[in-house]
Amino acid sequence: MEIRQIELEVMRYDPEKDKQPWFQQYTVPCQEDWAILDALNYVKDNLDTTLAYRWSCHMMVCGSCGMMVNGEPSLTCKTFVRDLPGKVRVEPLENFPIERDLVVVLDDVMQKLHKVQPYIIRKDDPPPEGVEYTQSRGALAKFKQLTMCINCMCCYSACPQYGLDNNFIGPAALALAHRYNLDSRDQGKSQRLDILADHDGVWDCSFVGACSEVCPKHVDPAAAIQQMKIDGALEFWKQKLGFPGGES
């Protein structure tokens, strides 16, 4: 298989040694079918065992290996050397504090995932044990795309709104809330509305749309947020005009 020498420029930061991040150059002989993650693994195994980064599945599903590749938030297992002529620059995901090298601090987004109550909330009793809900294929299709999020957090890294003010709940967590709102088994929409329509919720989004463009799983959080704005506005007027609460 053909080998290409790639100049890899990797951001390094060890808080016990460095005041601020810096770039280290590595020359990596890459096979033509390699992803950037393979190049990083080559560095780790052969050139520099001190490089820190997260990875696991190498099949676009665990969400560990989100990083900036040439300035773009990317899953490094899904970003191929063949598509990147010239030098490749790898940095930790933007908009997050850097813990070490390519590892970022995710505490904030983990709390946000928690905050939006991403689980089935029922007002009525669920079916008895062993009896499933009926859910038409159409009802499943309504939210299916939103279940594809792997929490790689590339969307937060692309979102300038979150970068400027990290009180914003942000793309993945809002899309997750919408996923449950749209699920025919859930009855928690109005309960979540208080969080989602609050100051740091959907209205903080100015629809830059970058989150959806970088999403490696085509979840389209930007669309979800706009839909939630419409939902929120409708709900507001329904309540103002005294209609019964629009529960899905």
């Binding site: 930061y13 808080p15 016990e16 601020q20 991040p21 908009n95 850097i98 970068g163 400027l164």
Partner: peptide, 11 residues
């Protein structure tokens, strides 16, 4: 020693 997460400045 130990943690000192680095926050990249945004203008």
């Amino acid at each position: 020693m130990s943690r000192q997460p680095y926050v990249r400045p945004i203008s």
